[in-house]
Amino acid sequence: MSIKTLIKTSVVLLTAGMCLYSTGTSAFAVGDISFLRAADTIGAGNGITAANDEKAQKYADIPVYSFIAVDISPDADTSIDYSEWWYSEWEDCHYLSLPSTADRTHLRIDCFADGNITLDGEMIKTGEYTDILSKADEFQIEVNGEDCGKLKVMQSDRGCIFIDTEVTTFEQLDANRFLTMSGEAVMIDADGNTVYNGDIEKISAHGNSSWDYSKKKPYNIKLPQKADLFGMGKAKKWGLISNYLDHSMLRNKLTEEMCKAAGMEYTMDSVFIDLYTNGSYRGTYQLSEKVQIQKNRVNITDLEEETEELNASELKNIRGRPWVRTVLMITLKTAINATLYQMTRRISQAVILCSSCSGTDTV
């Protein structure tokens, strides 16, 4: 072994030791940051905090039992492109979240209430198409003349994923991480092009601490066949990262981009999308490649069989085999890449934490 190789190996081992030592230090190094979003303030200075008392949540229960926008991706051949409004305890109002593909001049509204629903005085007829949602982003809701608060309409500018399940619901999976379920999905990019339209073989929980401490749960999905999602290459397995504990939602993506800029091989790719499950808007997620040995992912030799053969052989029988050196070099290269990735991720976390000291995080 040359001196140059010894020096490189020493540097890698020293770096790995530093990374292992630093794992004992919390990524949240500045102040006491709670894992509970309900304890945090959104937009400090704007006076928007969680409405915990009954008086503040005046419009939590109104005589409207459902309000659903249907056919919100008109160019997609699907019936699962719909979105139901949701109540915000932070602002004591209702929100309707729409994807970039929604034509607000021609949306069907399905609603059910104890009387006639009006938005800014204009009656909504259930099951009929209307252009009312194109006239403003905020509406006054009334049922038979009774004040029912505000409706705020938000429309995204990114791609979206609609998932529909029949037997098991996402609420059941959120309550029991050991459940798995299947369903169907439609994935559409920001320009309205259908990226995927078909079944999902398996939906399961993703992560450990990111699952336990998050109200917004992350998921794994497995497709029946390999598919190229949003230009990231064909594969079956994908991750839906919630980034709940990262108020900026940028740490993972920033780390990936830094690794690509540094020329690191096998850096996973990802895109931000809006997730809708059974008509419920779940928020912005990061659709990410899974780390796995595969042509479009980590394109290396699968060492499982070689490792089993090595473990089953006597040391004297494997000395001198030409492929042993190759196996060891691939293993070392993979370890170096993993170490550099962890270092880059911690640097990106430090950058974001430092920048947060000069301003207020936005959720």
Rank of each mutant, 00 (worst) to 15 (best):
E308W: 06
A50H: 09
N296H: 02
G43S: 08
L275H: 07
E54A: 14
N176F: 04
R108Y: 06
D92W: 08
Y266H: 08
G145D: 09
L98E: 12
E122W: 01
D361A: 12
G263M: 01
D137F: 12
A102G: 04
T9H: 12
T78Y: 10
I300M: 00
L328H: 02
G183V: 12
N311R: 06
Q225K: 13
Q155K: 11
L328W: 02
V291F: 07
D302I: 00
Y82T: 09
S26H: 07
L96C: 02
Y129N: 09
T301Q: 02
T78G: 07
L6H: 03
L328G: 00
A235H: 03
R297V: 00
L310V: 01
C148T: 13
L173F: 09
L107A: 08
I200D: 07
K226H: 04
G320F: 05
V70K: 14
V195K: 03
D71N: 15
Q342R: 10
H106T: 00
E138C: 14
S79Q: 11
W323R: 11
Y196V: 04
K55C: 05
D361F: 14
V64N: 05
W323H: 15
A69E: 10
T130E: 03
K236M: 06
H94G: 08
D53T: 15
G115N: 03
N252F: 11
A335H: 04
R345H: 12
K150Y: 13
F170I: 12
S34A: 10
G149Y: 10
T23P: 00
T101Q: 15
R282L: 15
M258S: 13
S288L: 00
D174I: 05
E314Q: 05
Q342L: 06
I48A: 09
R177N: 10
I109G: 06
N208Y: 07
Y341Q: 01
S2V: 07
T301C: 01
C357Q: 15
L14G: 09
